[in-house]
């Protein structure tokens, strides 16, 4: 959990927002540090978390969270965290091994034209979903919508989703591309965090920039225009520092 990010988003573990759908996206950069932030944030806040890890294994997330001061193993034993190892399960499904419990919902990997219906059945079981999605499927939008309808609206929980953009921005409106998925999900979400590499290239002191969009969903009535802020960030060993553009400590 990064306190700097909390102050940007105006949240704290004591004052946890409700019914939010946060969309984290990255392009030419790695936004997984934000996933680690949200995971530890919701665990600290005492929420029940269901984590669908499709990119990394449990031990990876566990090791990172340990550094951030949260023990995933303990949380799992307490029943606060349900971790679905998408990575391990996917392999089993693809190799058609003996189905272990929990892998049946990953059956979508085998049939290319499926909806993510079975995943949805699983997600219904818990209140706060932290979702890291690395798989690109056309039905992700439908899946996200169902998650949102169930988690955000019915249970007043929160949902976080990571999607990875293509390296180059596509011009065409391709119905299956990652860009299209990003746009469709941005229409759904209430808060969008877009992480990008610096347009000028790699830099030792600034790892990238993060755009924050508040889309004014929820019960509050705001103007039709989305609010937007831009920060640059640097990932440290045990945290991240955010600063306004051009105010890196290495520059000043």
């Amino acid at each position: 959990m990064f306190s700097e990010l909390n102050s940007i988003l105006n949240t704290s573990p004591e004052n946890c927002p409700q019914g939010e759908f946060t969309l984290v996206s990255d392009r030419k950069a790695d936004a997984s540090f934000l996933i680690h932030h949200f995971l530890s944030f919701y665990l600290r806040a005492g929420c029940k978390v269901c984590f669908l890890g499709l990119v990394q294994s449990f031990s990876h997330y566990s090791a990172v969270s340990q550094r951030l001061g949260v023990s995933l193993t303990q949380a799992r034993e307490k029943g606060q965290l349900v971790f679905l190892e998408g990575l391990k399960g996917a392999l089993g499904v693809l190799l058609e091994e003996e189905p272990s419990p929990g892998t049946h919902m990953l059956g979508f990997l085998r049939s290319p034209r499926s909806d993510l219906r079975e995943l949805f059945e699983f997600v219904r079981a818990s209140s706060t979903v932290l979702l890291s999605l690395g798989v690109r499927v056309g039905a992700v939008v439908d899946f996200a919508h169902y998650c949102r309808a169930f988690v955000c609206s019915k249970l007043q929980g929160n949902m976080v989703m990571l999607i990875r953009g293509e390296d180059e921005e596509e011009e065409e409106c391709d119905e299956e591309g990652a860009e299209w998925l990003l746009r469709a999900l941005t229409h759904q979400c209430s808060l969008a965090l877009r992480v990008q590499g610096l347009p000028t290239g790699y830099c030792r002191d600034i790892h990238g920039q993060m755009e924050v969009f508040w889309r004014g969903h929820g019960s509050s009535v705001t103007g039709p225009q989305t609010q937007q802020k831009l920060f640059q960030y640097k990932v440290h060993d045990k945290g991240v520092s955010f600063f306004a553009r051009g105010t890196s400590s290495a520059v000043l």
């Binding site: 746009r183 941005t186 229409h187 889309r215 004014g216 009535v221 103007g223 039709p224 225009q225 989305t226």
Partner: peptide, 9 residues
Amino acid sequence: TVDCCGRQL
């Protein structure tokens, strides 16, 4: 579009 929500209107 993504940049501007028309729902308020």
